[in-house]
Write a protein that binds this DNA or RNA. Structure first.
Length: 467
DNA sequence: ATGTCC
């Protein structure tokens, strides 16, 4: 037996060496060359049958590994051309966001997608991107802040009945902001989400429980906020008469817990797809029929419930301090994946900075720290995968905002609109965002606006450079 | 988004 025979079988370097070793043993056992070659062909045809043990086991293992690599590469290959997808407000969207969406639409698991008018560049899927996949979930298609969401509480209080200084005191006393911020043990908040048995189902959830328990009820950094403002309801809805109401609006996420879940499963997804093209690396996915995909799905949904619980605690404390019960509440997640039927197919719809907007569904689209936010009802637009924008969207990146905007202009903008700001960084300046009115105008076929909310006293984290 | 590597 020599190398030539083995090359003829179609074996490669490492496999040839293993085959040679096995063949030598079989020759010693008295088999003819033709018998051995027949055995080798049988191993090639069905390596799994020989992997458990015996003289051909090392060769069989190598052949199985080779096949797995080939399969993985094949399963991770991008389409030559992106599937087409509709865009709302293309005139407001920079080319970078489209380039990212194009890569997402080349994934073999992608089936449909849409770009919302607040879209801008993010990690992996662009912010404002909606992506429907088959039997797969993309951790970075959901984003780092899993379950990031909005909540509005409408209070039985006239807007001018709460003075600005009173609102300021309440926000300072009852909200906590900043990366890494947690409550002291004696101030720790409680919520039923912390009592779910889900926390015991995975090592990473067990590990992150303490962090989650100490951070629940806090707000993070960046664009997260809690604010008092005036809600204007032009026609009866939400079980309320038309009129003006004092309201609390918050933007918050799943804090360190969600961020670490996202990091863990993104790394896991990348290991699932080692041959994925570099431009799609941050779009690595987990199959939902695999235990890793199921684990992400469970952790993601827990982070979604946790983020909403976070809002509830913030709103409950503020309402209690005012000695009132909210008349109505609206909330929605805008960083999450949902099971949804698309064109008759059961798919996974990722919304990364996009508001679910199925027919009649309530949602919240905030503007900026000084511009109005809107309560909307979805119109269930099929091509938008029943979605809308999640806000105004960035016009300037954080660095660009810090470099081009100055405190004086931001203060003037706030003063003109009668907005008091506690904390807040220059990178969150209203001028860093697209005009919310423009963004809303580009999606009149996706949502109906039913009420507007003008911020009055806003609390955010202290940014790298204060305003 | 997150104490930016559990």
């Amino acid at each position: 037996m020599n190398g030539k025979h083995l090359v003829k079988l179609g074996l490669e370097k490492k496999a040839i060496a293993l085959a040679q070793t096995a063949a030598t043993q079989r020759e010693t056992a008295g088999l003819t060359r033709d018998d051995i070659l027949n055995e080798l062909r049988a191993v090639q045809q069905n390596p799994a049958a020989y992997a458990a043990g015996g003289v051909y086991a090392p060769l069989a293992a190598e052949l199985l590994a080779q096949q797995a690599t080939v399969d993985a590469r094949k399963g991770s290959e991008l389409r030559a051309q992106p599937l087409p997808y509709p865009t709302w407000g293309a005139d407001l969207i920079d080319p970078g966001a489209h380039r990212q969406m194009d890569v997402a639409m080349r994934l073999p698991i992608s089936r449909a997608g849409a770009l919302m008018p607040d879209a801008h560049v993010g990690y992996g899927l662009p912010i404002g991107g909606v992506l429907a996949t088959e039997n797969a979930v993309i951790p970075y298609g959901v984003g780092v802040d899993i379950g990031c969401s909005m909540m509005l509480s409408i209070l039985p209080i006239q807007p001018d009945a709460l003075r600005t200084d009173e609102a300021t005191t309440l926000l300072l006393k009852h909200t906590r902001f900043g990366a890494g911020v947690a409550f002291e043990k004696r101030d720790r908040q409680d919520h039923e989400v912390l009592h779910e048995s889900t926390w015991q189902d995975q090592p990473i959830l067990r590990h992150l429980f303490d962090k989650a328990a100490t951070q629940i009820g806090t707000s993070g950094s960046g664009n997260h906020f809690v604010e008092f403002g005036t809600l204007t309801l032009p026609t009866a809805d939400l079980g309320l008469d038309p009129g003006e109401y004092l309201a609390v609006l918050s933007h918050s996420g799943s804090r360190g817990f969600g961020a670490q879940v996202a990091g863990h499963f993104t790394a896991l997804a990348e290991r699932h797809h080692p041959t994925l093209a570099p431009e799609a690396k941050k779009l690595a996915w987990l199959p939902l029929d695999h235990e890793d995909g199921q684990a992400y799905w469970q952790a993601m949904n827990l982070a979604g419930r946790y983020a909403l619980a976070n809002h509830h605690l913030i709103h409950t404390r503020l309402a209690r301090a005012l000695n009132v019960t909210p008349l109505a509440q609206v909330s929605n997640s805008h960083n999450l994946a949902w099971k949804q039927t698309v064109n008759g197919q059961d798919l996974i719809v990722h919304r990364k900075g996009a508001t679910p907007a199925t027919q009649g569904q309530l949602g919240l689209i905030p503007g900026s720290m000084a511009d109005p936010g809107y309560v909307i009802r979805g119109l269930g637009h099929d091509a938008a995968l029943h979605s809308a924008s999640h806000g105004a969207g960035r016009q300037l990146g954080r660095k660009a905002a810090a470099n081009t905007l100055n405190k004086k202009d931001v203060q003037a903008y706030l003063t003109q609109r009668g907005v008091t700001l506690i904390g807040g960084g220059i990178d969150e300046a209203p001028q860093a965002y697209k005009r919310i009115q423009d963004v809303i105008a580009r999606q009149t076929d996706l949502v109906n606006v039913i009420a507007s909310f003008q911020p009055r006293v806003v609390r955010m984290d202290t940014g790298s450079e204060d305003i």
